[in-house]
Design a protein around this nucleic acid. Structure first.
Length: 415
RNA sequence: GUGGGCGUAGCUCAGUUGGUUAGAGCACCAGGUUGUGGCCCUGGGGGCCGGGGGUUCGAAUCCCCUCGCUCACCCCA
C-alpha cells in the first residue's frame, strides 16, 4: 500500500512544524484583521474555468475534474481565490459595506509531475482583501506576506514586483507584445509560438535562452500602463518604501492565472531549487464583476506550506518529540498493579498532567528504557514497597503517598 | 507531458567478472543487574533485493516492461 503519487503523509514529529506554520499564519493574518474562511474542497468546474482562465495550464491540463453521481462536473480546487470570491458573492458579503478580509488554510490539488516542493495535493495559506482599490492595500498584502514568512524564521527572501495593467491598458499591451512577437516568431521556441497566439504574456517568463534574449527587447508592461494604473503602481511602490520593504522590479513577472490585474508579486527563496516561489499574489480587480457581482477591486496572496516546511526542515532537521513528551511515565513491578496503575494514570490526566504507561507487560528495566526514550520528566513506580516518584533528570527518587503524587508532580513542574 | 539519476532490513548504505542459507552501522527487542533509564557488553527478531516478464544450470547483479522516488524542463505556492 502506498499513498497516491504526488501525495504524502505528514507524520507525528513533522506535523508539529506544520502546526507552527498554521499557528503563525493565524496570528499574523489576525493582526492585519483577516478572518478565516473555509470553502469547499471541490467546486463546480466552471468556477475555475471562468476565473483562472480556460487557456491556462492549470485549467487545460492540471485539474482533478470528475463527474459526480448526478453527472455534475466538479473539480478539486487548484487554488484558493475562486472559492473565496464565490462565497463572497453567494453570501452577499458586499452588503456589509466596505472592505472584506479573508484568510484560508488548506489543501489544493493540481495534476503535475511531482518534484521537490511540488505535490499533487499541496497546502496553501493565503489572504484575499475584497472591496478596495487603494494601493495601500497592495502594499499591506505584500508586507503581510513577508511578515508571515519572516515570523517563521525564513531569510534570504526576495520580492519581485510588477504591474500588468487593467482592462483598459492590458489589452493594449497585449497587442503591442503580440505584434512584437509576430516579428520574432521564427526565433521563438515551439511552446512560445503557440503562446504568442493564445496567451502572449506567458512568453515573458519562458526560461529558454533564445526566448529570454528576444524578450529582453520586448515592450515592458510598465511602459503601457494607463495613467490610473501608473499612478496606482507608483503609490504601491511609495508605500512599500515607506514600510521599508525591499523589492525588485520584474517587468517580466506574469502570473499564470488570467484574473490578475495591476499589481503582481512573487516571493522567492534561494534554498528551494527550481520550485523557488514560496508565495505569490496580486490584484484581481475584474474577477468579482466577471462572476456577476458589481465591479469590486480586490487583492490577495497565497504561500505554499509544503515549500515553507521544506525550507524550515533544512535548518533544524529533527526536533524529535521533545516538546510534547508526556510528563509522567508509570512503571509497575508486575501485573497485579495494573488496576492501581490505570487509575493513577487517569487521575493524572484528569488534572492536566500528561502521562503514559506500559501496555506490553514488560520488565521494569524495559519500562525505564521506554520512559527514558519518551523523555518524560518523572517516573512513578508501583510495587510492593509502595509508590516511588523518580525525577528522571536528577536521577533522584523518594517514596510518596498516593494522595500526594499529583500535587507533588505539579509543584515540581512549576519550579 | 519530455529527459537524466535512483529503487537491497524501520533508516543510511555495502554487495567483487552473474555462483552457497543477501551483509554492516544505526534503530528495534531481550538478557547481563531476581523491581530502576542513559554508557557498555552479549544475544535476537526483522529483507516477495520496488513489481512483472525474459536470458541462464544459476539473477540483487544482464535485458525488456511497469510502478515509485528524485532532479531538470514545463508550471506554479
Amino acid at each position: 500500500m502506498k499513498a497516491p503519487r504526488g501525495t504524502r503523509d505528514v507524520l507525528p514529529g513533522e506535523t508539529e512544524k506544520w502546526q507552527k506554520i498554521e499557528k503563525i499564519a493565524r496570528r499574523v493574518f489576525s493582526l492585519y484583521n483577516y478572518g478565516e474562511i473555509r470553502t469547499p474542497i471541490f467546486e463546480d468546474t466552471s468556477l475555475f474555468e471562468r476565473s483562472i482562465g480556460a487557456s491556462t495550464d492549470i485549467v487545460e491540463k492540471e485539474m482533478y475534474t470528475f463527474l459526480d453521481k448526478k453527472g455534475r462536473s466538479l473539480t478539486l480546487r487548484p487554488e484558493g481565490t475562486a472559492g473565496v470570491v464565490r462565497a463572497y458573492l453567494e453570501h452577499k458579503l458586499y452588503s456589509r459595506g466596505g472592505l472584506e478580509k479573508f484568510f484560508y488554510i488548506g489543501p489544493f490539488f493540481r495534476y503535475e509531475r511531482p518534484q521537490a516542493g511540488r505535490n499533487r495535493q499541496f497546502y496553501q495559506v493565503g489572504v484575499e482583501a475584497i472591496g478596495s482599490d487603494n494601493p495601500a492595500l497592495d502594499a499591506e498584502v505584500i508586507r503581510l506576506s513577508l511578515d508571515f514568512l519572516n515570523s517563521l524564521g525564513l531569510k534570504t527572501l526576495q520580492v519581485s514586483l510588477n504591474s500588468i495593467g487593467c482592462s483598459a491598458c492590458q489589452p493594449v499591451y497585449r497587442n503591442g507584445l503580440q505584434e512584437f512577437l509576430e516579428k520574432h516568431l521564427e526565433e521563438l521556441c515551439d511552446d512560445c509560438r503557440e503562446r504568442a497566439r493564445r496567451n502572449p504574456l506567458r512568453v515573458l517568463d519562458c526560461k529558454r535562452e533564445k526566448c529570454i534574449a528576444i524578450v529582453e527587447d520586448a515592450p515592458a508592461t510598465l511602459d503601457f500602463l494607463c495613467p490610473s494604473c501608473k499612478t496606482h503602481f507608483e503609490s504601491v511602490r511609495r508605500y512599500l518604501d515607506v514600510l521599508g520593504t525591499i523589492y525588485e522590479l520584474s517587468p517580466r513577472l506574469v502570473r499564470g492565472l488570467d484574473y490578475y490585474t495591476r499589481t503582481t508579486f512573487e516571493i522567492v527563496h534561494s534554498g528551494l531549487g527550481a520550485q523557488n516561489a514560496v508565495a505569490g499574489g496580486g490584484r484581481f480587480d475584474r474577477l468579482i464583476e466577471e462572476f456577476g457581482g458589481k465591479p469590486t477591486p480586490a487583492v490577495g496572496f497565497a504561500a505554499g506550506v509544503d515549500r515553507i516546511a521544506l525550507i524550515m526542515g533544512k535548518g533544524e532537521e529533527k526536533s524529535a518529540r521533545g516538546g510534547n513528551a508526556p510528563i509522567v511515565y508509570i512503571a509497575t513491578a508486575g501485573r497485579e498493579y495494573l488496576e492501581e496503575c490505570i487509575l493513577l494514570l487517569n487521575d493524572l490526566r484528569s488534572s492536566g498532567v500528561s502521562a503514559e504507561m506500559d501496555y506490553d507487560g514488560r520488565s521494569l528495566k524495559s519500562q525505564f528504557r521506554v520512559a527514558d526514550k519518551l523523555g518524560v520528566r518523572f517516573a512513578i513506580i508501583l510495587g510492593q514497597e509502595g509508590i516511588i516518584l523518580r525525577d528522571m533528570r536528577k536521577g533522584e527518587q523518594k517514596e510518596v503517598k498516593r494522595e500526594e503524587i499529583i500535587d507533588g508532580v505539579k509543584s515540581c513542574i512549576m519550579t
